[in-house]
């Protein structure tokens, strides 16, 4: 019996790829390519950093109670890009927006430019900003093919009529599109928060709380999937300025738990965490 048990353990260990031990900081391992799928087994080769999440407690409205305790981060880099895999526990899927309903989300934050002093970790500061890659679960669902109708939220909704769906307007025509935009004022103002999307990630710039605004160009891409215990999201973006194999930098993360009505400033976040690039695996 004792021999059989030892044999079983030995066989089990031989069949596993041993994951690297957790690391104290975020380490991006140089790789030939960057896995974009959070479920890709290649991620097991990257060392994992367990980042403790803190309450956003700088500005009102603050988060009052701890929700998500930590986010597990792995990273690869190839050429001029870095891919970060964020995984966190979340028992509920929150990916349908509505009044009083909020979406699961996460974000990666890096200093906007190399500086002797890093900006404030909570959204940067005037003259010393941060770049943010923001992923949201409802956008992910839309990218994966969920429709853009009210019935996706309320399956039994009865819609009499939308003016832009009038029979006199040819569906898909310029006139019809123009009229539809007039009935979606945010979209008309170039602020695409809902509706059909091609990416679940948006790029943002901030120079302090309340200053968040779109980045000049979309430079990040990403994808998220459900794990048995929560979410795993890969965000790929250009290497932050100042981060190289010979020059470490700083990085920060944030997680929003939709079921706890977290949104905007109501979030769990980290402070700055050192990030470095490692040429070889240990």
């Amino acid at each position: 019996m004792r021999y059989a048990l030892m044999t079983l353990i030995a066989v089990s260990l031989a069949g596993c790829t041993r994951a690297p031990a957790p690391v104290a900081d975020v380490v991006a391992v140089v790789s030939a390519s960057l896995p974009s799928d959070p479920a890709d087994a290649a991620w097991n080769a990257a060392p994992e950093h367990v980042a403790k999440l803190l309450l956003q407690d700088l500005v009102e409205p603050r988060l009052q109670a701890v929700s998500t305790p930590d986010v597990r981060v792995r990273a690869f880099t190839a050429g001029q890009e870095i891919a970060l895999r964020l995984e966190w526990p979340d028992a509920t899927i929150n990916d349908l927006p509505a009044a009083g309903r909020f979406n699961d989300a996460c974000a990666v934050q890096v200093p906007l430019k190399p500086a002797a002093a890093v900006p404030d970790p909570q959204m940067g500061m005037a003259g010393n900003g941060v770049a943010i890659s923001f992923w949201r679960a409802d956008w992910q669902a839309t990218v994966k093919g969920r429709g853009d109708t009210i019935r996706e939220i309320y399956p039994n909704a009865l819609i009499d009529h939308y003016p832009f769906d009038a029979p006199s307007l040819e569906k898909g025509s310029a006139a019809q599109q123009k009229m539809a935009t007039e009935y979606a004022p945010a979209e008309g103002a170039g602020n695409r928060r809902g509706g059909a999307r091609t990416t679940a990630v948006e790029d943002l710039i901030a120079e302090g709380p309340g200053t968040l605004h779109p980045a000049p160009a979309a430079i990040s891409r990403g994808s998220g999937v459900r794990t048995p215990t929560g979410w795993a999201v890969v965000i790929t973006r250009p290497l932050p300025d100042g981060l190289s194999p010979t020059s470490p930098s700083q990085i920060a993360f944030a997680v929003w738990e939709g079921s706890k009505q977290e949104s905007g400033a109501r979030k769990m976040r980290t402070g700055w965490i050192p990030i470095s690039i490692r040429e070889d695996q240990p």
């Binding site: 349908l96 927006p97 509505a98 309903r101 979606a184 004022p185 695409r192 509706g195």
Partner: peptide
Amino acid sequence: VYFNPMTGTSE
């Protein structure tokens, strides 16, 4: 003030 789930903004 009302949240519009289709535009993702408050109106």
